[in-house]
């Protein structure tokens, strides 16, 4: 199959949907002539023009608000927040408006919008351009949260998100944009709320999101040489969460390690851990559920400190090995 980068897969998904559906348009900062801070929308303005690829001033609340308004009138907008950190400026629009309109109007109005944003550290962009804030949105009733880890998932999930009638927070990762993978040319959808077992193994279940899926797979390769087989699970959609495959897997392995980049306290890992502990998988646990996640500090600018703030492959190897050996 043909290989595309994560950014190319997203772009192809956007282009193919815009070609078939005139209600879809893009709006964001520098997404037109410049092609987006990470190049996802490069060239789209040439094909679709400034009416459907709209450059805005630095105005995150405006981008979110425009998307909501357009969606209410029947459009399917795809907004872009240049760095996830600045979605903080859109919170009123997203939390109080986008998330609540459909409910408060008794289902008579709907908000079919997608807001794309790159999160994550690793680029030396320091504390205000490196955050992983996905769990803020998981906590809000009315929003869906999607976090693809591969080019294949990025395209399939984006198309599903565009055609979902609810506001979808679509969290990309800066370090994933250049990663490559097989992507079918024809448009396809990956249903939201469909957890994916990425790799089978019988010793430890590793639930990872976004770039941590990639790191967990590398850790699994290393540990396989020691005879430790990790089962890697990627929820892909954090909300609504399809937890059945996670519970099934933990019933098989008896051990669960949850890995995400976002800060551990208040992070999505706590939700996963609680789902496991509250399910029938509890009776199969052979060790405490473990979390491996970001430190409770702003992301440092210094490269070495930055690297040590979020889980790396060697950290996952270490934690998973200890779990497999019942060292906890």
């Amino acid at each position: 199959m043909r290989e595309l980068s994560y950014a190319e897969a997203l772009r192809e998904g956007l282009r193919q949907m815009m070609e078939t559906d005139p209600s879809i348009f893009l709006i964001g900062e520098d997404i037109g002539v410049y092609g987006g801070a990470f190049g996802v929308t490069a060239g789209l303005i040439d094909q679709f023009g400034g009416q459907r690829v709209i450059d805005t001033p630095i105005s995150e609340a405006g981008i979110a608000g425009a998307c909501i308004g357009a969606a209410l009138t029947g459009m399917r907008p795809v907004g872009e927040i240049q760095f996830m950190d600045f979605v903080t400026l859109s919170m009123e629009q997203l939390v109080l408006q986008a998330a609540k309109v459909r409910f408060m109007f008794g289902g008579k109005a709907k908000v079919p919008m997608v807001l794309r944003m790159p999160g994550g550290s690793g680029t030396g962009a320091a504390a205000q351009h490196s955050e992983s804030l996905e769990n803020w949105f998981v906590h809000v009733p009315g929003l869906k949260v999607v976090m693809p880890a591969t080019p294949y998932d990025a395209k399939g999930l984006l198309i599903s998100a565009i055609y979902d009638d609810n506001p979808v927070i679509f969290v990309e990762h800066k370090l994933l944009y250049k990663t490559k993978g097989d992507v079918p040319e024809k448009p396809y959808r990956i249903p939201l709320s469909q957890t994916h077992v990425v790799r089978q193994g019988q010793h430890v279940t590793v639930i990872a999101t976004s770039i941590m899926v990639t790191r967990a797979l590398a850790a699994a390769d290393a540990l396989a040489k020691e005879g430790i087989e990790l089962e890697i699970i990627d929820p892909r959609t954090l909300k609504p969460l399809d937890d059945a495959p996670i519970i099934e897997s933990v019933k098989k392995t008896g051990r669960a390690l949850i890995v995400h980049e976002a800060v551990e306290i208040g992070g999505f890992g706590g939700e996963i851990a609680a789902r496991i502990a509250g399910s029938e998988a509890f009776d199969y646990l052979e060790a405490p559920i473990r979390r491996l996640a970001g430190l409770d500090i702003p992301i440092p600018y210094n490269r070495e400190l930055e690297r040590n703030t979020v889980p790396q492959i060697e950290n996952i190897i270490h934690e998973a090995r200890k779990l497999a050996q019942t060292a906890y």
Binding site: G254, F282, D283, Y284, L285, E286, A287
Partner: peptide, 10 residues
């Protein structure tokens, strides 16, 4: 107190 994993208890 007996220390046992949930799996052991089941």
């Amino acid at each position: 107190k007996i220390r046992a994993t949930p799996a052991a208890r089941r």
